[in-house]
Design a binder for these strands. Structure first.
Lengths: 214, 214
DNA sequence: GTCAAGAAACGTACGGTGTACGTTTTTCCT
DNA sequence: AGGAAAAACGTACACCGTACGTTTCTTGAC
């Protein structure tokens, strides 16, 4: 009786992901993860090489939460839906976007990359556009989310307050920024901005294929 | 005689930037910075609030290296040139792109943001497109550079070697990725890829303005 | 020149971190 | 049952950020 569930790589990664979700990745500590699982620190090292490798594993767990893209539909719709899924997952795990480009891809991420490349290839854009399009699309997914989260975190809960403080203090020196900040306060619909910018890129890829063809 | 130059916030930030350029931001330590300047650790705290604040200052030093955009020329050309300047600076300080979205903007960055917004506003794209275009452009500059550096660092010096190892081991399981990797090995011109994707975005912004106007 | 006062450099100390290493306990297969 | 492999544990160490108190240096008024 009473003997708790044994440790495993998967249980460690899950606990670490939960901890990072809640307290941020900077506060993540091997001891904290061990505490959360009610084990001692060094036991983690039987299942995980070291902290860096654990972080890589954590990122791959998160990538594994992204649903694979649909197998039918217009390529732009499929890509939009897939990107939206990735965006949602990265927004749920706010630390993950910042790790994305620092870590080597794990198995889930390899599958994810493959699925993006498949969409682009089957869209028959030509090899050159597929090649560049892949970089453009992944850049957008990670970069946009990163920026979005960055704004959230530096502005904190009190966006309104911070913004009006900025407007009063420095609005005169930075008129264009003042306008932009007013935009953030106003009735802009941020919900579709991710899709809007991705749309620009996808349309551009489409068009540059046509140009090449014509 | 012999009394070395006194410490100052600026000297500290410069030393820290140099250290991070050379050894990476993860290896950056208050003691290491102090050693580089031949002072003791705690003396740094007379000029810098703490490590986080120092990192914010370091990023702002880097942003200060970006030349301000030209005051004449077509808005797309000006934006392309300005983005290229930012890209070059962020490529020189490989740790900086990763910090960009984590830190509150310092004075140099405020000026930089203002200059981007000025270009877009004077292009007469309409307030909605300026608003979204700003996010799209900054996302591209930081996100693309981040991704580029990420590739470099995880692949290391031996791109060729790693790539052919991947092709042999896993090429069969990931056919689309195999093709992509072959692209990386082949004769793609990476030099203009940053500009190419930015071009897609700028053209898209231009076009969505026309649509709104028409 | 001197002398007070503030700034800057310094030394010490503390709690926390990743993890190497050796030991003990548990698990599992014959 | 017994022995080997795996897993959990405890101890230890070097390094980290930084609070706090002390000493030294700089500077301006007389």
């Amino acid at each position: 009786m009473g003997s708790r569930q044994p440790l495993s790589r998967s249980r460690i990664l899950d606990a670490a992901v939960s901890f990072a979700d809640e307290h941020g990745v900077d506060a993540l500590t091997m001891r904290k993860v061990a505490d959360a699982l009610d084990f001692r620190v060094m036991s983690l090292y039987n299942h995980v090489a070291n902290k860096q490798e654990m972080l890589s594993g954590m990122l791959d767990v998160v990538v594994g939460e992204i649903d694979p893209p649909a197998t039918e539909g217009s390529w732009k719709d499929v890509m939009q839906a897939s990107a939206a899924a990735a965006h949602a997952v990265l927004s749920r795990h706010k630390w993950a976007a910042g790790e994305w480009s620092k870590r080597p891809p794990g198995p889930h991420r390899l599958r994810y990359i493959e699925s993006i490349l498949r969409i682009l290839t089957e869209a028959e854009l030509g090899p050159e556009v597929v090649y560049r399009g892949y970089h453009a699309v992944t850049m957008h997914i990670v970069g946009f989310t990163l920026q979005e989260i960055g704004y959230e975190e530096t502005l904190g809960d009190n966006l309104e307050e911070m913004a009006s403080a900025f407007l009063e203090e420095m609005g005169a020196d930075y008129p264009y920024m003042a306008e932009h900040v007013r935009g953030h306060l106003g009735d802009h619909d941020h919900g579709d901005e991710f899709a809007f910018v991705l749309g620009l890129i996808l349309d551009g890829l489409d068009r540059s294929t046509c140009k090449t063809r014509g």
